[in-house]
Design a protein around this nucleic acid. Structure first.
Lengths: 345, 345
DNA sequence: GTGAAAGCGCTAACAG
DNA sequence: CTGTTAGCGCTTTCAC
């Protein structure tokens, strides 16, 4: 293994053929360009023997393509996103694309930084869960003819391709599960983010509550500029004044996590008597006592739809592919926490 | 916002100055190269007005630098790695480096693919938790003079910079916590991976058990070619034949997760009576009933040490920086699961 | 103070 | 069938 980096020119010199020949062979165009089998073999053998790797930076510069797709979510550590990432990656690999993952923490500044970073590096496409304030950045990408597929949510006033679930319906059904479990005072803990998926979940909850002639009971935790301790204390305060409460529906994964922690520490709440439902599933929910019922998004299907659109855009680079919006249904996973509890009176 | 991508040449044309001038100004060398203030202002204003972003691919090709560091771990979704990633990123940003994260799933083939991907793209440095079989790939990077810092574990026969914790000592102390909690039959559930950090943990456990005149009781779950269901059934079988068992020490995060799931389903085990300790902390451990005691690695310190070495190597590019190995101590977080339990007889 | 031009490693049109 | 060469967008040396 020699020091430094070998170039295609070095190989041409070593083998006494031109760089063109090398380039053709390495790009699998040997046959097509009628390079002799002997030369092809010579080139292949040699490049393999020295473990030559072409400089993709130069390739990218020359071709204008990077064969890289960016997958940007709130938090790649999140069970839901991590699983989805895997599905997308598998599909991409089959088409010779690599996928780079990153987390925007639902933060506009960070999203922008990441978009810039990858845009400047000429990635071929973006799959993004947009944070609230990056509408214009997305619009710019589209303007520059770069394929973008949003998911989980999108901007209603921006014409983009997107894959989302029917949040209103999913929340409606989940709330009804609690209602069917004979719970009467069902709180909904959500964020105050004015993102469409959050609004949808809230609407679904409200509709179910209304149709059952119950009272809505909503806590909206501000989602900006709060660390988890602050959020937790808001949830704690909310629970403290809820003597009647018998069930809780958490609208996001991290709120569920906070909520379970608080319920655990409050004397007047018994996690085994409370009805609990979470939006988005998590590996720990089945280990928890009681196990936690959850609304699970159809990961496989989402990944496939996202990539179908992305690959199409990538292929039709020049003529602008018409945008496409897909809405999928979520699934309710019933566990212990949403079942009818032991009567208490 | 115009279509396509603006180049430095377009700007030169638009402003009637040469590309050199633009380049100098954009790289902050305006003053140094004695470009007039008027021209500097003109260039800055114009590039900002059209929101020009230099093509980093071309920059990279020209300078041979990408200003990107790769951070590769088993699973970036893991609490421990995610936190560490954040710390590293913060430090890198201050020195104008970006960090790209990726997960190798402790799989050699995947590690290799990722290393190749980034190597071909000329990233400036690698921070890696190596999977077992990539010793040679790491060696090649070092051979090619690319800065590499390993952490969590390293190859004893390869001279690399690395940051690790004292696993033997941490496991020894954690086991002693259980022993102090009056537990007598303490099982150690680990993988059969022959990686140094796993061997260290096993040794620490064994030493503590021996010094207390207890009997070691070890389950080594094969870590290759097993999906989580398979691993779980091995743990289930192990537990089934353990009537005497009163405590468990899990050597990794995912084994803890599996273990808790199994304990939950087995009639003869009561999670509230069992002593439990996990290696590596997790957000869910404090929500779990009972809350789970854990060995926590010193994240901040690890991140700082890793970056100290990395930045040094990056700066001294040419003369090969001597390698450096750092060993840090872990911390035991005592929660409910390791405390003395209600007497049972 | 500013510009011309070489060259980073690669692809591909064109020439022979 | 294979070689020569322009050029992707940028940095930087050297010239004026």
């Amino acid at each position: 293994m020699k020091k430094g980096r070998t170039s295609i020119k070095d190989i041409a010199n070593a083998l006494n053929v031109s760089v063109t020949t090398i380039s053709f062979v390495l790009n699998g165009k040997g046959k097509e360009k009628k390079i002799s089998d002997a030369v092809i073999k010579k080139v292949i053998d040699y490049t393999e023997s020295i473990n030559y790797k072409p400089n993709r930076v130069a390739q990218s510069l020359r071709t204008g393509e990077s064969k890289i797709i960016v997958f940007m979510v709130e938090d790649i550590g999140n069970y839901f996103f991590a699983k989805l990432a895997r599905i997308i990656e598998d599909i991409a690999y089959k088409k010779d694309y690599k996928v780079l993952f990153c987390s925007n923490e639902n933060d506009d500044a960070r999203s922008r930084e990441l978009i810039d970073l990858f845009y400047e590096r000429r990635v071929d496409g973006f799959i993004i869960i947009p944070s609230g304030g990056i509408r214009n950045d997305i619009a710019q990408l589209i303007d520059k003819n770069i394929p973008v597929v949003l998911f989980d949510r999108y901007f209603e006033d921006l014409n983009t391709s997107a894959v989302v679930i029917n949040n209103e319906d999913a929340a409606f059904k989940a709330t009804n599960k609690l209602i069917a479990g004979a719970f009467k005072n069902i709180a909904f803990i959500t964020t105050d983010a004015q993102q469409m998926q959050m609004r949808g979940r809230l609407e679904g909850y409200k509709r179910a509550i209304k149709e059952a002639n119950l009272e809505p009971n909503v806590l909206q935790v501000p989602y900006l500029h709060l660390n988890s301790e602050k959020r937790k204390s808001l949830i704690r305060e909310f629970f403290k004044n809820q003597e009647e409460l018998d069930a809780v529906f958490f609208s996001t994964n991290y709120l569920t996590q906070h909520g379970l922690e608080i319920i655990r520490e409050l004397e007047h709440l018994d996690v085994f008597k409370l009805g609990i439902v979470a939006f988005d599933d998590n590996d720990f929910f089945k280990i928890h006592s009681p196990s936690i019922s959850a609304v699970a998004q159809p990961l496989k299907q989402m990944g496939e739809e996202i990539m179908k659109i992305m690959l199409k855009m990538l292929k039709e680079k020049n003529n602008r592919t018409p945008t496409k919006q897909i809405v999928l249904d979520a699934r309710f996973i019933e566990r212990e926490s949403s079942r009818i509890k032991i009567p208490q009176d």
